[in-house]
Design a protein around this nucleic acid. Structure first.
Lengths: 262, 262
DNA sequence: CTCGCCCACTCGTCTAGATACCTAAAGGAG
DNA sequence: CTCCTTTAGGTATCTAGACGAGTGGGCGAG
């Protein structure tokens, strides 16, 4: 039996001033929220909804596009429209840069992925010297040129974040930090070996919709925002020694912080 | 002279396999990024673009809907489509719950708004006892019923966040915390007076697209995600004494944290 | 039985209109 | 001058239909 004849969806209210396509979207959303359609399940096809509601196809598509914008559903060409499963989230704990992790020779990403039982990967590594943007220059204390380390992180084959680290040339040039592989413990371990003992980090967090570039790089579904995190590392002399600019798929992350109450 | 005859926008590439409405969106996006259209400025009308590109109106509208989903533009019925201005952001510093602020008798929100020179407001206050959700119960250590304090925060008349605090009844019932106005320093000051000296906070941060309810409550524009923050306050006996569930308009906030490197 | 083709179903894109409603400015009545 | 109406120009919604293209199952040829 078709899901439509079984009362999953109601009728339209022609007296309502709410647009028809919104009413349809409302009914589908409610059905999803109530679990009438489960995660990964296929919604009625456009043609079925056209029949059920007696509207034109564009109106039905308009409804779907609302739900897509909310990140509730995703369409697959030739197959149908499906309830988007909520992917398991990865937790970034506030002690992820603790020295004891570095001393074990693992980078923060690997440590956390292993703990979660996932298979981590890093790709599209690029290391080069370049001109610092205005913002990066300000954060690093008025440097003109920087070493930039770009990479993308994947979890079980799915891209989840990409990041660029910027370091002042007078610190990084000619060191292992300028090599594709910075060695055990990552660049923070190298910075400490170079005499820049790390004191603290400052992180800024924003959330916004992704640019088309970011959609490509992270293979983002419609209706998935990104978390934009900018971290600055300071050494014990209060000098900023690294800025890391990270863009994360918001549906893959929960950030966790611990704050003192004092 | 019309912006269209002045070369702001190019032509379509009929040989490209990129959909026409995407090509148009690309050109508009690029023009915005390059500053050809400034913040708040009106884009060419649908009719003008129909003429310029020689496509149907639905195609042009489709392009606009892409840019809206990206949060780049917003349409005003009867007026036009405008480049969305990036609103000034409010910075939440990681020391916002420091005891020295409470001792000055101000709540965290008021302190920060005043510092930024804005006019803060709090409305839709509701205080009541209710059954704890599964999640809240877990976070508070298996309590069945809680005191819930709901409120919405506005800055210069614009709603920017709404929050609900949940407290165990055995702590809050019958105290000033159960009153609409919790007094100077907010509920954290009252908790400390009641013998629950605060030790630390744990915060969880997610970002996602808003529900229709949240769009209404925060008057969110299209293409603006929300930041969902869940904070748990612990007293010095390591007991969770409050859970605060906050939903913020992502275009109004930058969260800032400071992490020790140790 | 297996392979390859065809076809039905599905979403993606685009056209060409019609009607409704909103906004702002111009112009007329009082 | 003030207030209301008109009008032009804008977006919002909806219809009806056409063609393109990805998916998967059925069916016939070998």
């Amino acid at each position: 039996m078709s899901p439509l004849s079984s009362g999953l969806l109601g009728d339209l209210d022609p007296t309502s001033d709410r647009a028809v396509f919104r009413q349809i979207a409302d009914q589908l959303r409610e059905a999803i929220d109530r679990g009438r359609f489960r995660e990964g399940e296929k919604l009625p096809s456009e043609a079925e909804l056209v029949d059920h509601y007696g509207v034109s196809r564009m109106t039905v598509r308009n409804s779907f596009s609302i739900l897509q914008g909310e990140g509730l559903v995703h369409a697959e060409h030739g197959k149908g429209v499906f309830v988007r499963p909520r992917p398991p989230v990865r937790r970034l704990a506030s002690d992820r840069f603790a020295r004891r992790h570095r001393e074990q020779g693992k980078s923060a990403f690997i440590v956390e992925a292993d703990a979660a039982g996932s298979h981590p990967q890093v790709d599209s590594l690029e290391v080069k010297e370049e001109k610092a943007s205005q913002d990066i220059s300000t954060r690093l204390g008025s440097v003109r040129r920087v070493l930039a380390r770009r990479r993308r992180y994947l979890l079980d084959g799915r891209p989840v974040e990409f990041a660029t680290s910027y370091l002042p040339l007078d610190i990084a040039r000619g060191t292992q930090i300028a090599e594709p592989n910075p060695g055990p413990g990552g660049i923070y371990a190298r910075l400490e070996e170079l005499g820049h003992r790390l004191d603290h980090f400052e992180e800024e967090i924003r959330a916004r919709m992704p640019s088309p570039d970011e959609v490509r790089t992270l293979r983002l579904a419609a209706g998935v925002p990104v978390i934009h995190l900018i971290r600055t590392a300071f050494d014990t002399e209060k000098r900023p020694v690294e800025v890391c600019d990270t863009v994360m798929a918001a549906d893959a992350y929960v950030l966790a912080y611990q704050l003192p109450a004092t």
